[in-house]
């Protein structure tokens, strides 16, 4: 007799059921129930944002090197759980080959962003030679709490790439999993949970896109929203984002991820510092 898994959501480092008590059944091609998935509510979104905001200070102040190590740890744990993800992908309708490619891509993606953690700053920052006696530099800082809507047509890679690129740069995240293919996102939460990622840095919800996407878009304490184009939902989401001038970052489906996924979630901060010129040799030291 197989022990079935309960798919719950992930908020602030724990795995509660949705506060709403609702669920939706996930069916396989033959109409059999694979799992009962949490149908998260607006209130779950709010709880997740509180957790993400609370985690932001500590996570953004960790050293870039440390964040890189933690992302690499995620890759290690995902590698160790490969079989579980393969099974889940197949359950959700993927072929064996496609599932294998997707899991490999997810592992590679984590390794890729693990490596970026302490490098993107060097590539994107500038020291600016101002025409006055100041030391002036522009460096990137994480935007804060990022709302992530997973790419809908994949279960794993479409959520991993957005999480990795957001947290790599010191942001925290509230993630809405693919509505039709939510299983891997929940299992990924277990990977995250056992990878030294502090609770609250990544929060993962499952449920209806039409309910959760507007809740993310209109939340006043989310700094940016990342997604792939959702067709008709794009416009209402964009309008809702304006209330707090949330950065609304929408990629065309199939866009390759890379450095830009990190920098799109960073603000540029310019700092001015005076340089004193008193005494000392002028140019001939």
């Amino acid at each position: 007799m197989e022990v079935l898994k309960t798919y719950k959501i992930y908020i602030g480092g724990s795995f509660p059921r949705t506060e709403s008590g609702r669920y939706y059944p996930l069916l396989d091609a033959k109409g059999n129930t694979i799992a009962n998935v949490s149908l998260s509510s607006r209130k779950d979104v709010r709880n997740a944002v509180v957790a993400a905001r609370k985690a932001f200070g500590g996570w953004s102040e960790k050293t870039a090197f440390n964040r890189g190590q933690i992302l690499y740890r995620m890759a290690e744990i995902l590698e160790g759980r490969k079989l579980q993800f393969l099974e889940e992908l197949k359950k959700q309708g993927s072929s064996k080959e496609k599932a294998a490619r997707e899991v490999q891509a997810a592992i590679d993606c984590l390794v890729y962003y693990a490596g970026w953690a302490d490098k993107f700053q060097q590539i994107s920052s500038t020291v600016n030679p101002v025409s006055s006696s100041h030391f002036n530099f522009s460096a990137l800082e994480p935007m804060g709490v990022i709302g992530i809507i997973a790419a809908q047509e994949t279960s794993l890679i479409g959520v991993v790439k957005f999480i990795a690129s957001a947290i790599c740069g010191g942001n925290t995240a509230v993630v809405v999993a693919s509505e039709e293919l939510p299983l891997c996102a929940v299992t990924l939460a277990e990977v995250i949970h056992s990878s030294d990622v502090p609770g609250g840095v990544v929060n993962i919800l499952t449920g209806k896109l039409s309910e959760l996407a507007p809740a993310l878009a209109s939340h006043m304490d989310i700094n940016a929203l990342v997604k792939e184009s959702l067709g008709g939902l794009d416009k209402p989401i964009a309008l809702a984002c304006i209330e707090n001038l949330k950065r609304n970052i929408t990629y065309q489906p199939g866009t390759e991820h890379g450095l830009q996924n990190i920098t799109d979630l960073q603000e540029v901060k310019t700092t001015w510092h005076p340089i004193e010129h008193i005494g000392g040799a002028s140019s001939s030291y």
């Binding site: 101002v130 025409s131 006055s132 002036n136 522009s138 540029v268 310019t270 700092t271 001015w272």
Partner: peptide, 21 residues
């Protein structure tokens, strides 16, 4: 987006300017 330490309201063409939030 811009922080001045021991100075204020300094601007320069080479210095990026713009806001958060």
């Amino acid at each position: 987006g811009v922080v001045w330490a021991n100075t204020y309201n300094k601007f320069d063409p080479v210095s990026p300017f713009g806001g958060y939030k």
